[in-house]
Design a protein around this nucleic acid. Structure first.
Length: 464
RNA sequence: UCCCGAGUAGCGCAGCGGUAGCGCAGGUGACUGUUAAUCACUUGGUCGUAAGUUCGAAUCUUACCUCGGGAGCCA
């Protein structure tokens, strides 16, 4: 269908299959059908003349949503709005869509409504464009890492490590919830659940991160990345959170935090560039109808260096800003949304990488700095969507890591395999996690993360 | 989970104590190499759910459900 829109194609005979977007009739004895197959933003205008054998009997019954197959010649269009059109020789109807009951209309509808018809929303301009951009982002992610020699590693979705430390996990069980097996208990009290009778013989969950497993492969194969679904059972009701989302997690051996930050910056710029180069029409659509600043913002980001400031500098900037925040700023607090917004949207007006956070607000596996107070963590903050990447250099020193675990009330015994990586041939290494949906959200300007994933999973939301 | 705001025709909305309205979509007709076509007429509603106040509730009160904005948790 993309070829049918090109001037060079004039004179060629084509077969086009797709769904009718709209039909306009002329009493002059012909109809215009706008046909779209999702391969690109634009629809093809099909000219259906009354001379076609099924014009009265079938073609005039088609409308938005009908699926048809057109054979005809690509000709120059005399009308405005398109350079080419297809003069139909035959039109075969695959399926009608009743115009009175078909939920989509030839007009703008709300995102909230389209979410209730998630099985039909990919037929709209907006969701078609999102699907194509999401595809391009995914393709670009693989291409970026593959071209740099990273190995794609599949980490498990079901995990038995119940303390990955990144939030509330979903339980995975085959136990009969109406008759849960329990261990014997003293004094008639209810005993603990006996997971030995469960499928895996122990409690299991859906993964919240593939990082720890990725570290195993990075400390054997050097540079690796994971790309797959991730699950958080947090009761988050926001436009930036999902219970099931896709995450990219590179893990690089013999790499420090500087290398990690450079990789993250190059990575984001590559994705943005690829989308602008390969999804031009889709991006123009978003820029016109969703957010009039997305193209300008993406170009600006690709052409400029990300700001890099330490947490201490960030706090200093916020304190000296003279800006009154709802949550006062002082060294040691976690940065709030309003603080991140100030840095990315007001102060620098571009992505900001904040690094070297206080150890008390970050995970145990992040490498301790010589000051004993901060760790080699970094967050990439974007205007509007906030944190898009979170990463760190990992603690590779066995004794320091064990101490950190203890002070975080974690049992080193549980992480025996993770500690083995430091025990045998340890290496400095670093990595980060990128939220795919937040990336697509940022690129497209879509306001709600539930609209950039085909079938959103969120609290009380799993209808499709 | 917390704080605000909103649920009225298929969709987008107005009405905010006296019994239901507009635009679009749908239907009918007119007109036209048309572009979210245009014009005329027209069908269509237990006013989110449940209880309460009142002579009378879409309108006031309470609870619940869902959605949106903000916050927390994070990607």
């Amino acid at each position: 269908m993309q070829d049918a829109l090109k001037v060079e194609s004039i004179g060629k005979k084509v077969k086009l299959c797709g769904w009718v977007r709209t039909r306009r009739d002329s009493k002059g004895g012909f109809s215009f059908i706008e046909l779209n197959d999702g391969s690109c933003m634009k629809s093809v205008q099909v000219l259906a003349e009354a001379g076609l054998s099924n014009y009265e009997s079938e073609i005039l019954k088609t409308g938005i949503g009908s699926s048809i197959e057109v054979v005809g010649e690509i000709v120059e269009s005399p009308g405005k709005g398109q350079t080419t059109e297809v003069k139909a020789e035959t039109i075969k109807i695959h399926g009608y869509a009743d115009r009175a009951t078909y939920p989509l209309q030839k007009k703008a509808t709300s995102m909230e409504y389209l979410r209730t018809i998630a099985h039909l929303r990919p037929r709209t301009n907006t969701f078609g464009a999102i699907a194509r951009v999401r595809n391009e982002v995914s393709r670009s992610i693989h291409s970026f890492f593959q071209s740099r020699g990273f190995l794609y590693v599949h980490t498990p979705i079901i995990t038995a490590s119940d303390c990955e430390g990144a939030g509330q996990m979903f339980n995975v069980t085959c136990l009969d919830l109406n008759d849960i097996p329990r261990k014997p208990a003293e004094g008639g009290a209810r005993g603990e659940i006996n997971f030995e009778e469960d499928f895996f013989g122990r409690p299991t969950h859906l993964t919240v991160s593939g990082q720890l497993e990725a570290e195993i492969y990075a400390t054997a194969l050097s540079n690796v990345y994971t790309f797959g679904p991730t699950f958080r059972a947090e009761n988050s009701n926001t436009s930036r959170h999902l219970a099931e989302f896709w995450m990219v997690e590179p893990e690089m051996a013999f790499c420090d935090l500087e290398g990690d930050m450079q990789c993250a910056e190059d990575f984001l710029k590559t994705i943005f560039t690829d989308v602008m180069n390969n999804c031009g029409a889709d991006m123009e659509f978003f820029n016109q109808w969703i957010d009039k600043t997305v193209l300008e913002t993406l170009k600006h980001i690709v052409d400029s260096d990300f700001v890099r400031i330490s947490y201490t500098e960030a706090v200093d900037i916020l304190v000296k800003s003279g800006h009154t925040f709802e949550f006062p700023v002082s060294w040691g607090i976690d940065l709030q949304s309003e603080h991140e917004r100030y840095l990315t949207e007001t102060k620098f007006k571009k992505p900001v990488i904040v690094y070297d956070y206080p150890k008390d607000i970050k995970a145990f596996y992040m490498r301790l700095n010589d000051d004993g107070k901060t760790v080699r963590a970094m967050d990439v903050l974007m205007p509007k969507v906030g944190e898009i990447i979170g990463g760190s250099q990992r603690e590779e020193r066995l004794d320091v890591l064990i101490e950190r675990m203890k002070s975080c009330d974690l049992d080193p015994e549980e992480y025996w395999w993770y500690l083995d990586l430091r025990r045998f041939g340890t290496v400095p290494h670093a990595g980060f996690g990128l939220g795919l949906e937040r990336t697509v959200q940022f690129i497209t300007g879509m306001g709600n993360i539930r609209d950039v994933i085909p079938f959103p999973r969120a609290p009380k939301t799993a209808d499709f």
